[in-house]
Structure formats: C-alpha cells, structure tokens
C-alpha cells in the first residue's frame, strides 16, 4: 500500500533531515514509527502526505507517486499532524463540514458524514463549541475526525496520543485499533508500549536513518540473543561478582541488590555476548564454587530496551 524507497531529505544548513529511508506498509497494517525526538519521524510523514518534497527517493501511496500524482495521494490519506493545527475560531461541525467539502465528500452526504465521524470519535456533545474552547484531548479528537472524514484508505497519525491524560490515551488507542483492518495506518510515537500494543510492525528510526524494521515480537527475540540473565546468589558479593565476570562471554555484571549480611543473597544481572551460552554457565559456576543459587532468569527485553539498545548501539560500539 505504501512504498518508501531511498527517501532522503536534506535541509539547508546543519539541520538534520532523513537519509535513505526505505520501508513498505501492507494493506490493512498498522505500522509503528518509533524514534527519539528529532529523529526524522515528522519529516518522513510530511513527505508521505505531500506537504513537502523529498530531496531524492520515491514514495508510492496506493499506487500513486507523492510527487507526480500529489492530488490523487492527498485524496486518499487522512493526516493528523503532531501539533493538531485547527481553526480555533470555528465551531466543530462547521469546521468538519469545511474539511469534508475539501476532501471530496459529496454535497448531500456531508451532513451525515460529519455526524457519523463526530459520533465515532465521541465528539457529539461538543457540537456547539468553538474549537478554541476545547481541551487538548478534544482537539485531538477533532484532529482525528478531520483525518477520518472522507473515510481514507491510509491514515497517517503523528504522535496521536501525545499530551493526553491516561484515560484519553486509552480511548484514542482503542479508537485507532478499531480503525485498523480496512485502513492502512502509520503511527509515530515515542511511547513504546503503545507501539507494541497497536502495531503489527515497527520501524525504528534514529538520526534520520532506519535502524530496524520488524514485528515487535521478532525484534524482541532477535535482541534477546544478547543474553541477559538475572541471578540471585548467596555468598560474598565481591567473590561472586568476580567469579561471574570470569565466565567466558560475559560482558558485564551488575549487582542489583547487595546482600545486607555476608550470608544473605544478592541479585545480579549478567550480560553475555551474543550467541554465547548463558544460564547454564552461571549454574555450572555456582555448582563448582558451592554458591547457593536461588534464582536464575533469562531476561526478555522489552521494546523499551530494544529501542534504547538500537538507538544507542553505535555509541556502545565506539
């Protein structure tokens, strides 16, 4: 449905843009777009929505090129920018009718369609209000409503839950989830649980480059190979830590909760190199040294860890 190929955008001066971004989104899929602030998420989305051109590379939305067939692309997308820019001096239904008109909803259906969308995003009771009077959460819904008004095939949502309270976040998320299926959705966020909850696939982007594209599950299992193990062992902390460090393949050992007395247990996280055996080596060592082993858990990485790892990987290598 959406094909992004070698997309590059450079701004004048030293401002960062994006370099050589490529990914695909399949029909009906929710794609998460993950990255720290300033990574290039908004830039990419603005190119996808024909707001600005790329320096090089192509984007194809529903078979139309964003540069060549801009109007065709624009009539097929719904876009919610990060700042949700709205005309604050208009009433909600008046604004939505205006958008419906511009987005090509037939004259006769405009009124019904506006009522429908307002119902869908739970805005009906705000119909008499001016947009300027609405709280952030309701503005977000108006933003979502204008994106949905022409029932577009593709939805591009830039940080749709930013600045909302927890209850609103849950509502918006379930709304987005409900929209999936018929529509293709790209959603940017730096809230990781959100992405792992909503999205079938994740693109991690940092400093304008794609760092990883995969399903949240695959990313997790791929990166768990780095092998972190949590162990609770009784014994003298210095000895144990020393012993653990000498195991082949261990990168680092941290003591999480030091024992209060010599005989108490301490908790350690042990990080192994990729592809080396892990838990069994710790168990074997404990057996050899006659430490009492109370707990031994291989750690699964959360998306948060993966994200931090991928984004900071290069610094670690250096």
């Amino acid at each position: 449905m959406i094909e992004v190929k070698n997309l590059t955008k450079t701004y004048g001066g030293n401002a960062r843009g994006i370099t050589d971004i490529s990914f695909n989104v399949n029909k009906g899929e929710i794609l998460g777009f993950l990255g720290p602030n300033g990574a290039g998420k908004t830039t990419t989305m603005r190119i996808l929505t024909c707001f600005m051109p790329a320096t090089s590379g192509t984007v194809n939305v529903a078979g139309f090129d964003v540069f060549e067939d801009s109007l065709q692309v624009r009539s097929r997308i719904g876009y919610l920018p990060e700042t949700v820019p709205l005309y604050t001096d208009m009433q909600v239904p008046v604004y939505l009718r205006f958008v419906a008109g511009l987005k090509g909803v037939p004259w006769k259906e405009i009124k019904n369609r506006v009522a429908e969308v307002m119902e869908q995003v739970a805005l009906t009771h705000m119909a008499h209000k001016f947009i300027g009077e609405l709280s952030k959460g309701y503005r977000q819904r108006v933003g979502l409503a204008q994106a949905l008004i022409n029932d577009p095939e593709v939805l591009i949502l830039d940080e749709p839950t930013i600045g909302l309270d927890p209850k609103q976040i849950i509502e918006i998320r379930s709304l987005i989830k409900g929209l999936a299926g018929a529509r293709t959705i790209i959603l940017s966020s730096h809230i990781l649980p959100e992405v792992s909850m909503l999205c079938q696939r994740v693109v991690i982007i940092d400093e304008g480059k794609v760092k990883a594209v995969d399903t949240p599950d695959n990313l997790t299992s791929q990166l768990t190979k780095s092998n972190r193990v949590v162990a609770r062992i009784a014994g003298k902390q210095a000895d144990v830590q020393d012993g653990l460090r000498k195991i082949r393949g261990v990168k680092r050992v941290d003591c999480l909760s030091p024992a209060e007395s010599g005989a108490g247990t301490s908790k350690y996280t042990i990080e192994f190199e990729m592809d080396s055996q892990s838990s069994n080596l710790v168990a074997r060592l404990a057996g050899e040294r006659q430490w009492d082993l109370y707990e031994l858990t291989p750690m699964k990485m959360s998306l948060e860890d993966i994200f931090i790892r991928i984004v900071t990987e290069e610094e670690i290598k250096q």
Partner: peptide
C-alpha cells in the same frame, strides 16, 4: 499543513 495535504 493540513490545508496543503487536502486534495485542493
């Protein structure tokens, strides 16, 4: 930003 992304 929204206006320019509408099919107008």
């Amino acid at each position: 930003e929204l206006l320019l992304t509408y099919p107008v």
